[in-house]
Design a protein around this nucleic acid. Structure first.
Lengths: 187, 187
DNA sequence: TGTACATTTGTCATGTAAGGCAGGTTATAG
DNA sequence: CTATAACCTGCCTTACATGACAAATGTACA
């Protein structure tokens, strides 16, 4: 799943709430940097150029470009485990939020739009595999990385990978392993 | 890809029944949030900012902005009960979504922005009172109406009212009572 | 109730950016 | 390989911003 690094004029237009014609004019006037494809002369705008343009002109920056690139949602019912994980990650410079139950996990996932979640597979009243399926079925969550953190069996962890987890971490784990796994997901 | 709905000053003016010049003045005075396009300085008002402005000043909110004014999220783990409720409500013309567990309840609450939720207090792994407290602590959910549907005791239902439920309905109930309760919340 | 002042809103004219349409071309999906 | 969706260009129309001024509305006070 390659991240989108460039925008077409149409996409940029939707983000700005204007007609694509207007985007082209901004490009022509040199306000917005872009390059042209050889074929039809399509414009392509690099994401960083687009964001720079938005910032320069005080236009709102869509969350998916701005969105806390180093924020993590920890889904874990065991409070000690949760605070241990969040302590380690905060020390690494991440913004960390914690959900102790399924409801707040769902609510925070939708509102905070974290870059990564750590997901405990076995929580009371919460089917971790179901959560994975849900996440992978949502278009707006396709950039979300999921690290399954669980004491499950090998088979269970493999199933999680099949269901769309980006990585798994077997409990108990070393702090370094956790940090390494998260960093790897955020490359 | 988030489709951002925005309004021009002219559109906003029509909705408010005023001259577009007035809309611009409201923006200049900081009453209404908006951003400017680089070219001529056209204003663009994000739909959510516009709705917030309307609410703040007790102006009527046009239906098309009012989220789904007749949409209901049914939070209920018992599938038969859930489909019974949703059948009754659909027949009344409501748009109904169902969450069978806490996670999807939280996620759907944040994404669908329903006008009402029916909440079962006793669901495995989900503390109904906690959900109520969460809802009432969130600014953007302050317009959400909560109908608690439960087989709880009188005391339990009263506690739910204390925690912020807008109405309660004791199981078992008549279909008419359900419809009546929902309609009353949406006056 | 009436008057005077302050504030807000609407109107007009002008310049210009943004939007719409048609016609052709090319990516892109299936 | 085909069908469809998306994009580009050029031309024309629409609608917005701005400033100055007029009208309407609100407020204070006698």
């Amino acid at each position: 799943m390659a991240e989108i690094r460039v925008l077409t004029t149409g996409e940029a237009a939707k983000y700005c709430g204007v007609n694509f014609r207007t985007i082209i004019r901004w490009i022509e006037r040199g306000k917005l940097r872009a390059y042209k494809l050889p074929g039809r002369g399509d414009h392509r705008i690099r994401e960083e150029d687009f964001v720079a343009f938005l910032r320069e002109n005080d236009l709102p920056v869509p969350e998916e470009f701005d969105g806390a690139p180093r924020s993590v949602l920890v889904v874990e019912d065991n409070k000690e485990m949760a605070s241990a994980i969040s302590r380690v990650l905060r020390r690494e410079g991440f913004t960390v939020d914690v959900a102790h139950d399924g409801f707040s996990a769902g609510a925070q996932l939708a509102t905070l739009k974290p870059a990564v979640i750590t997901l405990d597979l076995k929580m009371p009243g919460l089917d971790g595999y179901g959560v994975l399926r849900y996440i992978r079925s949502q278009e707006e969550l396709k950039h979300l990385k999921v690290l399954v953190v669980s004491a499950e069996t090998e088979d269970g962890l493999n199933q999680a990978l099949d269901e769309g987890a980006n990585a798994v971490l077997r409990k108990p784990f070393e702090n370094d392993a956790l940090v390494g796994a998260i960093n790897q997901l955020l490359v």
